[in-house]
């Protein structure tokens, strides 16, 4: 697909507007919807906006989060026990319209979205002001053949993950199907970091050299000033998830957790 076509479909998409003006040193923060309280979503969004995150990823909690470490497993389980669901999340986002302006991406597992209905999911996401979606267990082939058209029709970006073990031809496939950016998983590990905790800058450098049509933004294992610096040096931005959720588990207070996170990253 030509770049100009992409622009048309995503006109007015807040993430697109952001990425057109800012192409480096981006900061995105992930949080689990419905944690620590069911009604925390609005507060967390406002705080992240206020503290200077460029965009957010809102995690849709799932009972069996295969790619997540113990921290996000725990926040997901609590969020589900709090009663979070896709419908509840959309209702919350509807009520925040106009109050929160930070671009939002939804990140979740495929099964809850399938059960909700992909068409209905996209329609409601778009009307709730969501910019894009990440579903790490939706295979690229199936996205292309079955679902891509639905996401595009609703002006929703779709973002694929690539890892240091993804071969080049598959990276190009992910690039051709992703809009907005590619999510570069810097280490072969579940969320919350692998054994070493060291980020694969080689991999990020390799992505840079591949001259992809999308920018790549690094995530998984980013937790402090040094890892943000590396992510910024070798990619267009840094995505922080587990480090934030850890603070939120410890303090139970979104204000405190957000302040501490930003202090760790930039203080």
């Amino acid at each position: 697909m030509e770049k100009s076509e992409k622009m048309d479909e995503y006109r007015g998409n807040p993430l697109m507007q952001l990425l057109q003006t800012k192409r480096e040193k981006l900061i995105s923060v992930f949080f689990t919807a419905g944690f620590p309280e069911l009604e925390s979503t609005g507060e967390v969004l406002s705080l992240l906006e206020k503290y200077g995150a460029d965009f957010v990823e809102i995690g849709i909690p799932y009972s069996d989060p295969l790619a997540d470490g113990p921290v996000i497993q725990q926040t997901s389980q609590t969020a589900l026990a709090n009663g979070m669901s896709i419908d509840t999340l959309f209702n919350q986002l509807d009520s925040l319209h106009g109050k929160v302006n930070i671009p939002m991406i939804l990140m979740g597992y495929l099964n809850p979205v399938l059960q909700y209905g992909v068409e209905k999911f996209c329609a409601r996401a778009a009307s709730a002001g969501v910019s894009g979606v990440i579903l790490p267990d939706l295979p690229p082939d199936e996205y292309k053949e079955t679902y891509g058209e639905i996401f595009r029709k609703h002006g929703l970006h779709f973002i694929f993950l690539v890892t240091p073990t993804t071969p080049p031809e598959r990276i190009y496939l992910a690039d051709s199907l992703s809009t907005a950016f590619i999510y570069a998983v810097g280490s072969s590990s579940i969320t919350g970091g692998g054994k070493s905790g060291i980020y694969s800058t080689d991999f990020l450098q390799r992505l840079k050299e591949m001259k992809l049509s999308n920018m790549h933004i690094a995530g998984f294992g980013i937790k402090d000033r040094e890892s943000v610096r590396l992510a910024w040096e070798y990619s267009s931005g840094a995505i922080i998830g587990t480090a934030f959720m850890k603070k939120l588990i410890e303090s139970g207070d979104p204000q405190k957790a957000t302040g501490q996170l930003m202090n760790d990253l930039f203080g």
Binding site: D137, E142, T165, T166
Partner: peptide, 20 residues
Amino acid sequence: NRGFYGQYGGSYIPELLWAN
């Protein structure tokens, strides 16, 4: 060839598992 018996099966895995 994609691992389906009719509409069942397939390989719905995060990219992190794909190479394995």
